[in-house]
Simulated assay, not measured.
Amino acid sequence: MLREIVSNEIFTVLLVICLVLLAIAKLLYTKRFHDFINIISNFRYLKVYSRDQKFIDGFEAILFTNLLISGSIFGYLLYENFIGEVKDSYTLLFQIAVGFAAVVLSKVLIERLIGSLFSIDNIMDVYVFQKLSYKNFIGVLLVPINATLLFSISISPTILLTILIVFLLINCIGLIASYKTYQSLIKPNLFYFILYLCALEISPYLVIYKLFIDYA
């Protein structure tokens, strides 16, 4: 059964922008894009490209922009199906994008600051790169998923929860990859690692959820 569409012009435009961004990334960084797409089954991308990082990386910037847009669309669908009717689509999409960008970028800055304070810049840079890479991979997956949810099928809470679980598993793969890379450093400091996970990996999203419920 086709999903009843009230007005999807804004989503069509945003999806087209996402496709253009991915096309640009593939055109300008063909080899890197191919390695990136296989990030789940092959850690080559993480090993090779983590060595040559820049403060502002064109490839990562393109994918992160796609993540913001596609993530905002998916967040909109979550709100619409779990919280209630959306009165102003444009405002809600903007709020989700700004909130998500603020959390991710703030975390990156804090983690880089921690790396600088404890003289572990190289380790923290690689760790941040790995985390952002998996998030950007989710952003790529969201493009066809959003298109399907918006234009092809009737959305149900079960479908959305299943997608969220898959994304959670992908994030867990990223954390496991980081743990395997630095397990010799983490094991003696397991308590601080768990504290870090609670403070910077879990609590920011709980704050977003709370603000989302209160002010959206």
Rank of each mutant, 00 (worst) to 15 (best):
I163L: 14
Q183L: 00
Y49T: 03
N42S: 12
I138H: 03
V128R: 05
N81M: 01
L161M: 12
Y45C: 10
K180L: 14
K180H: 05
T162K: 03
V104W: 12
I114A: 00
I62H: 07
Y76I: 00
S116F: 14
T148V: 10
I194V: 15
F43W: 07
D35W: 00
T91Y: 10
F191L: 14
F11Q: 13
L160V: 06
L28S: 04
F94T: 11
S70I: 09
E60T: 14
D88N: 09
A147D: 02
S7I: 04
I5T: 02
S72V: 02
T65R: 11
P204K: 07
P188S: 03
T181R: 15
N122V: 03
I40E: 11
L93A: 00
G174A: 13
F43N: 15
V103K: 13
I186G: 06
S119V: 07
H34F: 06
L161H: 04
V128N: 15
L46P: 02
I173C: 11
S156Y: 00
T158I: 12
F55H: 12
L142E: 06
R44H: 14
I159T: 15
I62Q: 13
I213D: 08
G115E: 04
S7Y: 06
R51T: 05
D57W: 01
L149Y: 02
I186Y: 10
N136A: 05
D57Y: 04
E201G: 09
K131N: 15
I163G: 06
K47N: 15
K54I: 00
I96T: 08
A177R: 15
Y209N: 00
I96Y: 11
L164G: 06
P188H: 07
K135L: 15
T148I: 08
V103H: 06
R3K: 11
I83G: 02
Y179F: 15
F36G: 07
M1N: 11
E111A: 05
E80T: 05
N8C: 00
E80G: 01
I165M: 05
F55C: 02
V128W: 01
L161F: 11
I159M: 10
I138S: 03
Y45E: 10
A61N: 11
L168E: 13
L46N: 14
L168T: 14
D214P: 00
T158H: 06
I202T: 07
V166A: 11
L105E: 12
I62K: 05
